[in-house]
């Protein structure tokens, strides 16, 4: 492989891999606290992108019940400048986080308090995902919505540089995705590793009953976890939506599935694992040769299958101990 195409693939892989990582962190946070997989996470990802789009554009002109309603008749205040676009992204992610909190209150908590089979959480969270996805379809239709190219003001669409004779092009969006993901990972690492909230979260993850004996309000920290999870999911949704368009109510489904592969690859419930898993899968996909690109979507699952057989606890997971 030539150096230029190597660098190109590397950049593509890092950008998409870092999105996988922050998306999968949302799964992992909930799993580490509750031991369940929240299948609605893919739908929250989709919602994040739609929330941000709502703020930036203000209307969905193609289809659905909301057709013809314009939130900002005089032009959206969030459009046209990079700072305001960033603000819209954060607000969209917060709204997604709020939805995740709602999901926990309405679908997960009642089930825990009844002592239901944890497997049922899979079904109930899938039910929530169905509700969200079909509501989106009902409200704004199944069309693809692209962010207008002037939405983030005067930003160059791509950077290009030469390696030898070949030109390597890196889209600005990719650089932003990568940078935002790094910042998010650093912030999350700081919050969980160094702050009091993080300490409490780790305590709840280790043992909810002990944590509650020590005066930690377990339910409150579960809510915080869901908010963080939804925030990360919604942020990832906006980032992907900015790069490739908000591709209909189902566009989170693929990420929802790949996110599963990411967390298992890295080790269920492990934060560094989710990051490593995301980057490994992003890079592996980017380096699939062009003639096999149709099989790209199978790469993540092939890796998942192999890692489960070779090292079930994942790359960075804790050893699984079989208790009697």
């Amino acid at each position: 492989m030539e150096l230029s195409s190597f660098v190109q693939n590397l950049m593509n892989g890092l950008a998409i891999g870092s999105v996988y990582a922050i998306f999968a962190l949302g799964y992992t946070l909930v799993f580490s606290i509750l031991g369940i997989i929240n299948f609605a996470h893919g739908a929250v990802f989709t919602l994040g992108a739609y929330f941000t789009y709502t703020l930036v554009v203000g209307q969905f002109e193609n289809n659905g019940l909301l057709k013809g309603i314009n939130l900002f008749p005089d032009g959206s205040p969030f459009s046209g400048s990079a700072v305001m676009f960033g603000l819209a992204t954060i607000l969209g992610a917060c709204a997604a986080g709020a939805v995740a909190v709602l999901i926990e209150r309405l679908a997960f908590r009642p089930m825990r308090s009844r002592g239901a089979d944890p497997l049922l959480a899979l079904v109930s969270s899938l039910g929530v995902a169905l509700v969200i996805v079909n509501l989106i379809q009902l409200l704004v239709g199944a069309e693809i919505y692209n962010f207008p190219s002037d939405a983030y003001g005067e930003v160059r669409p791509a950077l290009s540089f030469k390696i030898g004779e070949k030109i390597v092009i890196i889209r600005t969006v990719q650089l932003i995705i990568f940078a935002v993901s790094l910042v998010m990972l650093a912030v999350l690492g700081y919050v969980i590793g160094r702050t009091k909230v993080g300490k409490a979260l780790r305590a709840v993850a280790e043992s909810p009953s002990t944590a509650s004996l020590l005066g930690i309000s377990v339910d409150r920290f579960i809510l915080i976890t869901f908010f963080l999870s939804g925030f990360l999911g919604g942020l990832a949704g906006t980032l992907v939506g900015t790069a490739f368009g908000v591709a209909g109510p189902y566009f989170g489904v693929v990420y929802g599935l790949k996110g599963l592969a990411v967390i298992v690859l890295g080790g269920l419930g492990s934060i560094p694992g989710a990051v490593a898993g995301g980057l490994v899968i992003g890079l592996a996909e980017a380096f699939v040769p062009a003639e096999y690109s149709a099989y790209k979507d199978a790469v993540a699952f092939a890796l998942l299958f192999v890692i489960l057989l070779v090292r079930p606890q994942g790359l960075l997971g804790r050893n699984l101990i079989q208790k009697v």
Partner: peptide, 16 residues
């Protein structure tokens, strides 16, 4: 009536 089960099962994989 059984006492309510604690919020999370023991059998889970993770640490933060």
């Amino acid at each position: 009536a059984r006492p309510p089960i604690a919020p999370a099962p023991d059998a889970k994989g993770g640490t933060l």
